[in-house]
């Protein structure tokens, strides 16, 4: 047995955690499980891919940065993809969720997100076919970092990106006015209105942030694994498990939950076989719901 699974788990956990932040915020502030969140990841990856292509056709081939598999166009496109996906989430809310929310039945909104998920996924399959594609087909050499663990340059950089995004999100939630207002809305929307918080603005911020982080997670999956229309769907259960494990509404909880799920999945590949990998998230989800329904960082509401 090697300790490589620790690194694999960390990377998988980062992808799950980045996506789970959006899941947990949407759940806490809009009070519904958005099953289309995984598809935001796929749309983020594909929109980034399209932007890379656009940049490529404008400036020609750009050499990769040092030992990485990609150059500055991907970084720029990644940021563009985050903006695009944030706006996509906003658009979906304006077209669909906001209208249903106004009628006041939460379950209808959840069901609508199932439909939106299917529509978004099929649009991608229609436009890009269901066969996988890649940001780069360049082979990356993994370098040993001790204890029998090897890491590629891409992995190092993307783990760094995750760290920056997660710390940034935590600072935003803890120290900014918007972060405090988001927490206030998640705890008591009616009181939030009474103290002068514009609910619509907070809802828009939630979608923008959730969509952008899903896109970053999609970029990470795209660079380190592959890009497929179903990539987000496969991440959906682990993301929800992470959000619930961490405690709904908690950003650090979602990330920690993601890491726990990612590490458990990677460990299960080594210990019990790869075919059980998907079951792990499910088992953890059920166990948390039975033992501590509020999650690690969750607090019993009222």
């Amino acid at each position: 047995m090697t300790l490589q699974f620790l690194l694999n788990g960390l990377i998988e956990g980062s992808m799950i955690g980045l996506g789970a932040i959006g899941v947990t915020l949407t759940y806490a502030i809009l009070r519904f499980s958005n099953f289309a969140h995984g598809d935001f990841m796929a749309w983020g990856a594909y929109s980034t891919l399209m932007l890379v292509g656009l940049i490529g056709s404008a400036v020609g081939t750009v050499a990769p940065i040092g030992p990485l598999s990609f150059g500055w166009p991907l970084i720029l496109a990644g940021l563009g993809g985050m903006v695009f996906t944030g706006c996509l989430a906003l658009l979906l809310d304006w077209l669909l969720f906001a209208r249903l929310r106004a009628r006041g039945q939460a379950i209808v909104v959840v069901m609508a997100s199932f439909g939106a998920s299917m529509a978004l996924r099929n649009l991608l399959e229609f436009a890009f076919t269901s066969s996988p594609t890649y940001f780069s087909r360049k082979i990356q050499i993994a370098r040993p970092i001790g204890l029998g663990i090897r890491i590629t340059p891409d992995q190092t950089v993307l783990l760094g990106m995750t760290l920056v995004l997660v710390v940034g999100m935590h600072l935003l939630m803890t120290y900014s006015r918007t972060g405090r207002e988001m927490k206030a809305v998640s705890q008591n929307p009616a009181l939030a209105r009474v103290v002068g918080i514009d609910l619509d603005r907070i809802v828009r911020m939630t979608w923008l942030i959730g969509g952008a982080l899903a896109s970053a997670a999609g970029l990470m999956v795209g660079v380190l694994v592959q890009i497929r229309p179903l990539m987000g769907l496969d991440m959906l259960l682990p993301m929800f498990a992470a959000a619930i494990l961490g405690g709904i509404g908690s950003v650090p909880g979602a990330v920690l939950g993601g890491l726990v799920i990612g590490l458990s999945q990677a460990a299960s590949v080594q210990l019990v076989g790869a075919e059980w990998r998907q079951a792990v998230a499910f088992v953890i989800l059920v166990a948390v719901l039975l033992v501590r329904p509020t999650g690690l960082f969750g607090v019993q509401e009222r």
Partner: peptide
């Protein structure tokens, strides 16, 4: 949410503070 700006403040009977924000952050928000 615009009543505050208009100069009208309201204190509901129950659930009138944000339980998971600190006292200071309740005031700040």
């Amino acid at each position: 949410h615009r009543m505050v700006q208009a100069g009208l403040a309201f204190v509901p009977q129950t659930e009138n503070v944000f339980p998971l924000l600190s006292v200071q952050d309740n005031l700040r928000v």
